[in-house]
Structure formats: C-alpha cells, structure tokens
Design a protein around this nucleic acid. Structure first.
Length: 259
DNA sequence: AACGCTATCAACCGCCTTTGC
DNA sequence: GGCAAAGGCGGTTGATAGCGT
C-alpha cells in the first residue's frame, strides 16, 4: 500500500454546487464531448461518465424544469408505443427533457397504470378505462419492468450527503436545488468576464462560456491536443480556498476567447 | 406528533456502440 | 481488420420529500 493521491480517488454520490460550477465552467471551455478529458483536468475526481451524466441530466442550460405538460405526456406515450424504451430517442423529440427524466416519468406513470389495472382486474371493480394504455402494451410484462421490487433495507451508504445545508428545510432544499443551478449560471456571469459578453439575463446564450462562438469552436481539434492537460492541471491545482480555481478558469476562458 | 408508505429524482452500473489508432 | 478507449444508453438503486393514517 502506498499513499494514494487524493486525485486518484474517484468521487461518487451527489454533486455539490461547487462541483457543478466547476463542471459547467469546464464544459464551457472544452465542450460537452471530451468527458474523460474534462474529468481529468477539472480535478473533479469524477469519472467522465459521471460528468457527462451530470451535465446532460442536470446542468445543461437547455433543460426544461418542472412538470411535464399534457402535450409532452402524450408525446411520451405516443413515442414509447412506437419505439419502446428508447429513452434517449424519445428525449430527442422532447426538447429540454432528458432520457432520465422521461424514464423516471414513465416508470411512475406505468406504476400508476399498473395499479389501475390491478384494481380493474380485481373482480369487484368496474371495467377500467385503460383506453390509452393499449399503447403501453409494449410493457405488458411491463409491470415487472417498473416493479423494481421496492427498496431493500440497507444501511445508508453514508457519505451521500453533499455536505451543504444539512439542516435546510425541505422546501428550502427543493428551492436550493433549483436555485443552485440558476445560481451557477448567474455566477458564471461574473463581472470579470462580462466584458466578453453582456450580462447573463437568464438566457443561456448570454452566458460568457456558452456564448455562441464557444471557446472550443475557436480551436481546431488538434489544438486541444497540446499540453493542455498539463496546463489545466496547473491552473486548477486544488486550492484550500477553492474560489480561486474558478477565477483561474475564467481567466483561461477569457484567454481562449480573446486569443 | 410520529410513523409508514409512496412518488420522485439523481446517480451509478453494466453493456453496447462508436471512434481512433 | 483488430483492438482499446471513450461515449452513449437503458436499467436499477438509493435518498428524500410529501402525504395519509
């Protein structure tokens, strides 16, 4: 056994605001493709996959939030009847929605349907109107697909807490969740970089790092093959103070933008 | 007020596909 | 064409908020 560097330890579990911020920043710089690279140079100690997932499912600026509209619900039903569990494919037809979201929605939806069905099957119940459920038949065995058998009682796998705001009220927590992302995008619009692009007004395109000619679009692929990794590593040396990492990031972003 | 159950969401895992060498 | 690495996808799990008893 030898001393394992902190960097070698892959972090798991919920993302902190700081990590989110960091990820957004790096995606802004390098684009949303090179996840392994981003994972490495960002110093997040996450896997590329994890970074991608976080971005796609939560941080992506084009994401819609909130409940599915009836139209969306209908579309999901329709598309699912066509394509089955091709969540990502379905998601592509619903701008702003992620496959994960749709998947979750579907599971919930199906569970409800299943319960209705069961009730309908029970002798005393009147004929149900699973009218639209006919298109759900893809999953007639379906019940099993969403029936995960419930949760197993398991010792809580500690370390899952994000470390921030343990005592926040549930409502606040919820808000915090929604806020935090907003916050990130707002924060990105630091005055320091606002000289590059005007104030972030809630519109993604005004976000400095996501502004239309994105940094990575300036550079050909080969450019990134330089010793960027090394450089970035140096830039993002984990500092106890934390905040300065981001400033470095902005500086770097600025440099990329301005040449 | 306390407890239990359900719904919802975020995240991980493993497999498959794509891409680069 | 074969191999390895990275990315993408679908399935599953775990935590927690919300609601009913």
């Amino acid at each position: 056994m030898k001393m394992v560097q902190d960097q070698e330890q892959i972090r798991k579990g919920p993302w902190t605001e700081q990590e989110d911020f960091q990820l957004v920043c790096f995606v802004g710089l390098f684009g949303d493709r090179r996840w392994d690279f981003i994972a490495k140079v960002s110093g997040l100690n996450r896997t590329g996959k994890s970074c991608r997932l976080r971005w796609v499912n939560y941080l992506h600026p084009d994401l819609k939030r909130g409940k599915m509209t009836p139209q969306e619900e209908r579309l999901v039903l329709e598309l699912h009847s066509k394509w089955g569990n091709r969540w990502s494919r379905i998601a592509r037809k619903l701008p702003g929605r992620t496959d994960n979201e749709i998947k979750n929605y579907w599971r919930t939806h199906m569970r409800k349907k299943a319960q209705e069905k069961k009730r309908a099957m029970s002798p005393s119940s009147s004929s149900s109107n699973c009218s639209s459920s006919s298109n759900i038949t893809t999953t007639e065995g379906g019940e099993s697909f969403y029936d995960t058998g419930g949760k197993k009682p398991k010792a809580s796998s500690g370390g899952k807490k994000t470390g921030g705001g343990d005592e926040v009220k549930e409502h606040e927590k919820r808000e915090q969740r929604e806020y935090s992302l907003d916050d990130i995008w707002k924060d990105i619009n630091l005055p320091e970089v606002s000289s590059i692009v005007p104030v972030y007004d809630g519109n993604l395109s005004s976000c400095p790092l996501m502004a239309s000619p994105r940094p990575w679009e300036y550079c050909s692929d080969s450019l990134w093959k330089m010793d960027l990794e090394e450089e970035s590593k140096n830039m993002f040396l984990p500092t106890p103070s934390g905040d300065h990492q981001f400033l470095s990031c902005y500086e770097y972003g600025k440099a990329s933008l301005t040449g």
